[in-house]
Design a protein around this nucleic acid. Sequence first.
DNA 1: ACTGGCTCCTGAGGGC
DNA 2: TGCCCTCAGGAGCCAG
Length: 271
Amino acid sequence: MPELPEVETTLRGIQPFLLGQTIEGLVVRDGRLRWPLPPDLPERLRGQSIHGLSRRGKYILIATDAGTLILHLGMSGSLRITEAELPPRKHDHYDLVLTGGKRLRFHDPRRFGCLLWTESDPELHALIAPLGPEPLSAVFDAGYLHARSRGRRAAVKTFIMDSHVVVGVGNIYASESLYRAGIAPQRAAGDISRQRYARLAESIREVLLASIEQGGTTLRDFVNESGNPGYFRQTLNVYDRAGQPCRACGTAIEAARQGQRSTFWCPRCQR
DNA sequence: ACTGGCTCCTGAGGGC
DNA sequence: TGCCCTCAGGAGCCAG
């Protein structure tokens, strides 16, 4: 379940293996992803050299001279660097083969991920252009959230999970950020003060940064074997803790469904 | 312009 | 031990 920290960790993990390398080919075992893998992609990629890797939201962008690969991990996707002779496991849907034998191998049991191709500026791509700001950038602050939320009756949790508002806040970190900010998840986004949004913006930043740091410690594992950058290991305050005592006040953590998603919060600490 | 609900997919976990 | 059911989730899409 990659959230932004996992994607960032993945990007940092694969970058040294890809940058400056030449693509020998693309091996597709199952192109039925969120969007079908473009059938002509292997021939387009052959011989291209990779001159840049970046991230926009949870999309990983791999730039070549001819165009840019747009990769998303969905919710169960992972990437790893393998040696050529390593036999594929179940759900290893494609390999980006590099000259020299190493491969970038995409694994995704649920196939919610994707691999797309654009020959224009990727920032203008239909999936990228409407995205909100990066939560770790300077423009993401109280003023932005406050202005953007006026008149909106949707719950604040739904609001911050909308990638058109801000990218990279998934279900787990949405609950954790709201807990840290002391805001009840079902409160209407438009009713929250600028001051409380200042705290929320800061909380989102802190939760994401802490998690990126943790991902950093498992970088080596990720590249070599597990592919499991570990937010499971980090201490969650509310997520999946229904009925358990709040770490701050001891009140039982509550759980509810919100927009098809599970939400957890402390009824005493969050108002 | 918003909002909420639906959808894709497979594996895990619970109940019996 | 095995079967069936439900649930989990990113995020685009669409109807209202």
